[in-house]
Each structure stands twice: as C-alpha cells, then as structure tokens.
C-alpha cells in the first residue's frame, strides 16, 4: 500500500514542476508573506513625507531609523537591549525550569497531583502583573522583582502544558513499554517525555510571549535601564521616534523568539508527520 503511494507521490511533484517555471514561482512564494509588511511600510513612509501624517502623532520610518542610528552610535540602544534580553532570559529560564520540573512531578505522580495541583491552580488565577506593587515592596526596584515577575508569568503556562502533555500520552504505549520490561526512568525518558514534548513546546512558545509582555510592564516601573526605561525616558522627553523604535524592537524580538522556538520544534519533532516533509510525503 505504501509502495503504491510512494510511486504516485513523486509523479505528482514532477507534474507540478512542469506546470510552472519552478525557480521564479518558488521565490515569489517565499516573498509573498513580506508583501503586506512592505506595502504598509511604503504607505507609512509616503504619509510621513507627504505631510498626511503629523510627525507629532507618528514619526515616519526614516525618523525612526535616524534615531536608531544615533542611539547605536552613543552605545545606548545596545546597552538597554542587552539589559532587557538578560532579564527575559534569566526570568524565562527560571520560570521554564521550575514549570517543567513541577509539571513533570505532578504529571507523573497521582499523589503529587492530588497534593499540589489545587494549590497551583489557585495561585495561577492571580494575575501575575497584579503582584507588581508587592514585588516592589519586597524587593525594591532592583533586578529581582523584574526577573521574578517574568518567571512568574512563564511558570504556569509551562506547568499546565507539561502536566496535560504527560497526562495525554497514549496509555497503550506506556503499557507496551511496561510489557517490554522498561524501567521507570526508561519509561519516562523513552515514552512519556517524547510523547508529551509537542505540548510542552507549545507551552514554552506561549510562555515566551508572556515573558516579553511581562518585561514591558516590569521595565516601565521605576527602571534605570532596559528598553522599558528607554520608553519611559522618551515619553518624558516627548521623543515619539524613540517610543516607536522600541515598540518595533519588541515586535522584532518577539518574532525572532517565535522563529527560534519553531525551528527547535521542527528539529525535535522531526518524526511527527506534520513537522517533517519526509514523513508527510506518504
């Protein structure tokens, strides 16, 4: 049966290649997603230079590029960007590791679930950003409250997805593993974690978004460095171009982070029919 599919599949591909001039079509296809952002950018630029757009409402793209260059020349942009990235990285790492560890324990052990899950679910209902005043009260306005807030935002989405990923592993595969004499650690490592991986990664991707969001809020409060400080500072100095620049940086960073997790997903889940071109073929 597979043989039949394997014979027909390449034939269908050949047919498609003959129908269209391959290279041109392929390049066009890959550029297609960029068409709309490009058009919007051109529109933005045109509105700015033609005077349709008041620069005290929104500066044009060239103004943003200018201010980016001047900030880079003074070394400020790099500095604030690195500070922010460090906060996200540390907070995200802390939260993801904690969420993963908690999730694995609660996912694997019914006793741990019975003991801890209710508490965790209750704590989860507190919006973590509501803790900002408390954090500042406890930790002052140093690095700790910001990093901890990011970690708090991350921990639950990783936790929930890890628990539910582990719980949804096919019990028939686990039974098979037991009948093949796998030890408990082997069972976890070879069957349960790979089976839960897809959902764990979904949780991590979502958590990355939450981490950025939390950072924006955490940095706008009594901050002396970081992108959030840059925005606050610019607001006070009425520097709209800096504000727009930082917003664009946030967007780009979020997009890059998503791209990174997607490529990690594609790598780790290459066996999965919906991630692998090789497996998807038949």
């Amino acid at each position: 049966m597979t043989d039949a599919v394997d014979k027909t599949a390449p034939a269908r591909i050949v047919e498609q290649q003959e129908r269209v001039p391959g290279l041109l079509r392929s390049v066009g296809w890959h550029l297609l997603p960029w068409l709309l952002p490009f058009v919007l950018l051109v529109l933005w630029h045109w509105s700015a230079v033609s005077g349709h757009l008041n620069r005290s409402v929104l500066p044009g793209p060239l103004d943003v590029v200018d201010v980016a260059i001047s900030l880079i020349e003074r070394g400020q942009l790099q500095h604030h960007l690195i500070v922010s990235l460090r906060r996200v990285a540390v907070g995200f790492g802390l939260g993801a590791v904690t969420g993963l560890a908690l999730g694995i324990v609660v996912g694997l052990s019914t006793t741990a679930r019975q003991f801890a899950d209710l508490t965790i679910q209750m704590v989860r209902t507190v919006p973590h950003l509501a803790l900002v005043p408390l954090m500042i009260f406890w930790f002052g306005i140093g690095e700790e409250p910001r990093v901890l807030l990011v970690a708090l935002g991350v921990v639950f989405s990783v936790y929930i997805n890890t628990v539910s990923g582990i719980r949804s592993v096919d019990p028939k595969l686990v039974e098979m593993g037991r009948s093949y004499g796998l030890t408990k650690p082997q069972l976890i490592w070879s069957i349960i974690l790979p089976g839960a991986l897809q959902q764990i990664l979904t949780g991590i991707r979502y958590a990355l978004g939450v981490a950025w969001l939390t950072l924006v809020v955490a940095e706008t409060i009594a901050s002396r460095e970081g992108l959030g400080f840059l925005v606050q500072d610019a607001r006070e100095l009425l520097r709209l171009d800096v504000i727009v620049l930082v917003i664009l940086i946030y967007a780009a960073a979020g997009w890059l982070a998503d791209l990174l997790t997607r490529s990690i997903e594609a790598r780790l889940l290459s066996w999965h029919p919906s991630y692998s071109s090789r497996a998807a073929r038949s």
């Binding site: 028939k172 595969l173 039974e175 098979m176 009948s179 093949y180 070879s190 069957i191 790979p194 089976g195 991986l197 889940l269 066996w271 999965h272």
Partner: peptide, 14 residues
C-alpha cells in the same frame, strides 16, 4: 515473555 498487540504500538518518535 513478550507481547504483540492489535495496534502496532510503535513509538512514533523513534
């Protein structure tokens, strides 16, 4: 003792 099931129960990630 080894068992074979109605479903193949192969691990898709291996």
């Amino acid at each position: 003792v080894r068992m074979m099931f109605q479903e193949d129960r192969l691990l898709p990630w291996r």
